[in-house]
Design a protein around this nucleic acid. Structure first.
Lengths: 278, 278
DNA sequence: CTGATGATGGAATGTTTATTCCATTTCTCC
DNA sequence: GGAGAAATGGAATAAACATTCCATCATCAG
């Protein structure tokens, strides 16, 4: 008698998307073939549920609708409708008339300040979505490894990359990680601070700043590992860096919001600090 | 015979949300009472249509379902279902499995770098949505007026606000607007640059930096207009500034992505430059 | 005041979609 | 290899929903 296999049987339904994922993981492997097929498909297309009918989801998962219904019940819901409600609520909380508000701001009239806010917010959102979509996790992990091993981290970023570099400098300081911001205030004298065992984190976007590239080349020549944060395609830059992280930042007009770049840079910093502490 | 009032009668349906808005504007004022009520409500809750039934939107608009149906037809659709399809498609294009991707990143494991990226992206998105939602357009316009009249714009921002101030410095330079970044590199000597006819744009978040507040107080004493960019509630700061712009930045861990702050600051800069050129 | 035109609300209808049921197949364990 | 249990697919049913229709009400010109 399989008395300990009853986690399969119903219980009360997940009330958040996170809880839903948990239940999905809990069930993984213990399900019969068709239901596992449902689980796999649903796990990969969570957001399509909010807007699709059972028939559509079932067809996409290549199972009959009745199998999908059983799946919903095993997940703890009374049926598909109840499961769908969870995702619909999550979706409507996600954008609480945000689109409308943006449109209203944009309608404020060309050149008006609130229109600009809407545009920059939109550009920032797209940039961050692109980051989430295209992030190269492998390179990111390697970059963290590499920087975590460095004694001192040197930061390079000029012109529009300077805000990012200076923010990193602040964050590293708060996190207790030794970092030097090469801000060029007193000429290039800081270059003498480059020592074996250090690493360089350089940030530059096309058209690349000469100072940054020169610094990277110097560091490379001195045998220091170099991590480069830039925009794709980074073909020209591959030779001067050990790891290249790319981030697609959407411009509005001539300027970019830097949202995605900062998010990536911050993550890098926090991950490096966490790695060091252990 | 009202031969020129036939724009009310059907034609082919709007195929984009923008076209939908146009048609809405075109119809405005020419509709009988109940239908106008529908139009008003729909205009204000565009995104709720994708997820609601006729009965729900009708109830929210305080009209019977049949009135809502008539409204759909006047908009050019065959009925509510067709109208809803437009918004559902817009919604699913808007987040192309972005939520799923984020969740996958988060699942990478606590402390892992890609998890952090997901968290910072999420925080950034929320911050920007909050900005779009809560932006005080009046204050923004006043700030633009005020800064556009200044001969030179002084920029103050230290610690975590420094990246924003330095980016503004870069942007103003590109835009040909005279601006001075008070970066404190050479002590506080730059204070002597404050002259009548200038204005100060200060950025600071709780806990407020003393330098920034002191500079603002000085500027105020010298009769210069002061615009302050900070987080709500800004009660303590109201006395030292002419205009206070607030922006809610969501933290993740101890750090913030600055997305919303930068978007607002950039908009301010571009609007000021545009105003000056005319 | 009256008749015509248009607007309105609610009940009736038809369609889509979820859900259940059951006959058949597939596994599992002895 | 066979008995029992579980799983499966598809057809039948039920629920939710959109849509239409019509009787009633308001508006306005003459």
């Amino acid at each position: 008698m399989p008395t300990d296999l009853h986690p399969i049987v119903p219980r009360d339904p997940p009330r958040t998307v996170a809880a839903f994922r948990d239940r999905l993981r809990e069930l993984n492997g213990r399900l019969p073939r068709r239901l596992q097929q449902c689980a796999d498909h649903v796990a990969r297309n969570l957001d399509s549920i909010a807007l699709s009918t059972v028939a559509q989801v079932a067809q996409a998962a290549e199972v009959p609708p009745s199998a999908m219904m059983r799946f919903c019940q095993i997940m703890g819901f009374s049926g598909y409708a109840e499961m769908q409600r969870l995702f619909r609520e999550a979706l409507s909380r996600g954008m609480p008339d945000y689109a409308t508000r943006l449109a209203n701001l944009k309608a404020g009239g060309a050149g008006h300040a609130s229109t600009l806010v809407a545009e920059f917010v939109e550009a920032g959102r797209q940039s961050m979505e692109a980051l989430a979509r295209d992030l190269d996790e492998t390179s990111l992990t390697q970059a963290v490894d590499l920087l975590a091993r460095a004694r001192t981290i040197h930061l390079a970023g000029f012109r529009r990359s300077f805000p990012v570099a200076s923010y990193l400098s602040y964050v590293f300081d708060k996190l207790g990680v030794a970092a030097v911001l090469h801000d060029g205030v007193a000429g290039l004298g800081q270059r003498s601070l480059l020592r074996p065992g250090d690493a360089l984190l350089a940030i530059t976007f096309a058209p690349y700043s000469e100072e940054t590239l020169a610094l990277a080349a110097d560091a490379r020549a001195a045998g220091m590992p170099v991590v480069l944060l830039t925009d794709p395609p980074a073909t020209r830059l591959a030779p001067v860096a050990d790891i290249v992280l790319t981030v697609t930042e959407i411009d509005f007009g001539a300027f970019r919001s830097l949202s995605a770049t900062i998010a990536l840079a911050l993550s890098l910093a926090v991950a490096v600090a966490a790695r060091r502490d252990t």
